[in-house]
Design a protein around this nucleic acid. Structure first.
Lengths: 146, 146
DNA sequence: TTATTATGTTGTAATGATTACAATATTGAT
DNA sequence: ATCAATATTGTAATCATTACAACATAATAA
């Protein structure tokens, strides 16, 4: 999923988004870190390389990229947005124990119902919550040792 | 969907939730107002009847009811949670123009994928965004009059 | 290249939903 | 009626996100 600086430049141009070092770097960060990072993680990750980077810029860049359809904003919990470079149809599973967000295949389009016949649907989101296999192992061990 | 105070009392007892006037009233409010209200709307709606009501109580009550599975928290936008008394499987459509949240039928269980075979799924959420029929009419009229 | 204009970036300060907490009140059980 | 556990209340804190104004940079045309 990692793409070169040049490829990313082309993607932004195609979407008519003005080029800037910051925007390219945010986009690049998302292609490398596909674990649905928070704004803070993106900011901290890029801060070393771009010491003048402002968190406001990260927010406005992500908002611009999302508007252009290059990035998807994930709102699962109400306390912190996550960002995903994968814009194709898929679901998210958030483990309530470790906080990890997993991607999973899902044909969301198959769900479209008659209830929404006259609605203009722009964005479809599917997310599950629960406990991931890794954390389930930990829980089982904990209950066995009681 | 409206239920009597006595019926709601039974529901709370069945879930082993301690009874209080505030909790019953919050629950009752949700059975009457099924338009996915915010905490502020619930608080303001009940404030007349219960002048001593605190917003903290509304939060903690909703949290307790959600834990018991009597209420569903809807996080579509990141800025404000909405609450829904309908806990059965269904999707939400949020109109980005007027802000209304519509319910729609959807068999979310049919989506379960192999990717999540070993996951313990506790909660499934589906939401779409876009423009509702009412607002679409307004937009068409606006573009015609240009 | 240079000048011009539009747009992006930055830092600080505000916003606003949600939570923490301690004092008080109420519930449920004995 | 008493008592322990839990709920309510009000205030203050938290913290992600946004507003804004000064400044910097990118795109465009000469």
């Amino acid at each position: 999923m990692k793409r070169s600086y040049e490829e990313l430049t082309k993607e932004l141009k195609m979407k008519n988004i003005r080029l800037s070092h910051q925007r390219l770097k945010v986009l690049e960060y998302l292609t490398i870190h596909m674990d649905h990072p928070t704004v803070d993680q993106i900011y901290n990750g890029l801060h070393k390389e771009i010491p003048t980077l402002s968190k406001t810029t990260v927010y406005s860049t992500l908002s611009a990229l999302a508007d252009a359809g290059l990035v998807r904003i994930i709102n699962i919990e109400d306390n912190e947005a996550r960002y995903d470079i994968r814009v194709a149809d898929h679901g998210h599973f958030k483990c309530e124990s470790c906080g990890t967000i997993y991607d999973f295949q899902a044909n969301i389009d198959s769900l479209t119902t008659v209830d929404l016949k006259r609605f203009d649907i722009k964005d479809k989101n599917l997310y599950f919550k629960g406990c991931c296999p890794t954390c389930l192992v930990g829980k089982n061990e904990a209950s066995l040792s009681k």
